[in-house]
Nucleic acid binder design. Structure first.
Length: 283
DNA sequence: GCTTGCGCCTGAATGC
DNA sequence: TGCATTCAGGCGCAAG
């Protein structure tokens, strides 16, 4: 599923294939993809039709098209969202939810199987849509403040993985990269943030940056001109994963079997040897 | 204010 | 074979 590196690859695709064009028509195939646009689909169509796209920006896993009037078309890919650049004659994509006709004759299609993602129009949101003002900067952002993150995470009273997934604390980290960064940092997912040392937080952030940077580098290589990357279901980074999805397989570091625990209605993969469960006092 | 858990969704995989 | 259930997880929201 798309996490920060995948969203960044999509943003780069939009820079190449959507920026500089005007939206000449909007077709809504499934109104559920616009549920975050509270004024309704008709209002979305009216506001987006005719906008000139002058940029594509991102914060965490949110991305938005910047318009010449200073507004934004805000998008989230959710679990399964994709943007496709297609010729109008091309067959309709499976799960195609919204279509933007562009002034160069191509179409920007938003497809989303599970409809966890969606689009909305944000007035005056070109710089930063107010709907996502609460989303923290991501660790690949040059303005990410590591000292501030250290201060805030160690003030929390929660598990370290839960904190990593909290987009108001640090954005762009999803379940997969959280498990990978924790494995590399030798931290158990339930370690209490209050008991983390500065060094542990620093190491963790470093590994988050590394794992995302590596995924981004690999994602950038598989870009196709007519397919604004991100296949919601398959990942080019799969083969590089050392914890996520590896239940029962040997840990690359110690050889012991990777374990899977239920966690927040999802899974956590961890090595019981390298990432020892914290003692009760450290929970 | 902070923390936690639920519901939204579809379709592949699994169980009976 | 066919139907029912489980599982995947980012995010907003409400409850504690």
């Amino acid at each position: 599923m798309p996490e920060l590196p995948e969203v960044e690859v999509v943003r780069l695709g939009l820079v190449d294939h959507a920026v500089g064009r005007t939206v000449t028509a909007v077709t809504v195939h499934d109104v559920r993809s616009l549920r975050r646009h509270v004024a309704g689909p008709a209002d979305f169509v009216a506001r987006v039709t005719g906008v000139e796209i002058v940029g594509a920006a991102r914060r965490g896993k949110y991305l938005w098209l910047q318009t010449a009037d200073g507004d934004a078309v805000l998008c989230h890919l959710g679990m399964s969202g994709q943007f496709l650049i297609s010729h109008p004659d091309a067959p309709t994509a499976r799960h195609q939810r919204v279509t933007l006709d562009l002034s160069d004759g191509m179409q920007l299609r938003f497809a989303d199987q599970r409809i966890f993602g969606g689009m909305s129009f944000s007035e005056s949101g070109a710089e930063l849509p107010p709907q996502i003002a609460h989303i923290a900067r991501d660790p690949l952002d040059p303005q990410f403040d590591a000292l501030e993150f250290d201060r805030r995470i160690r003030r929390r009273r929660t598990g370290v993985k839960r904190a990593l997934l909290d987009q108001t604390l640090i954005s762009g980290v999803g379940n997969i990269y959280a498990d990978e960064a924790l494995w590399r940092s030798k931290l158990h997912y339930a370690r209490n943030t209050r008991h983390l040392t500065r060094r542990e937080v620093s190491t963790l952030v470093g590994h988050v940056v590394d794992v995302m940077g590596q995924a981004l580098a690999q994602g950038g290589t598989s870009f196709d001109a007519l397919y604004v990357n991100v296949n919601g279901n398959s990942g080019y980074f799969d083969r590089s994963l050392q914890a996520y999805g590896r239940e029962g397989r040997p840990c690359d570091r110690c050889g012991g079997p990777i374990r899977r625990d239920a966690f927040m209605n999802r899974s956590s993969f961890w090595c019981p040897v390298c990432q020892p469960r914290p003692r009760a006092s450290k929970f």
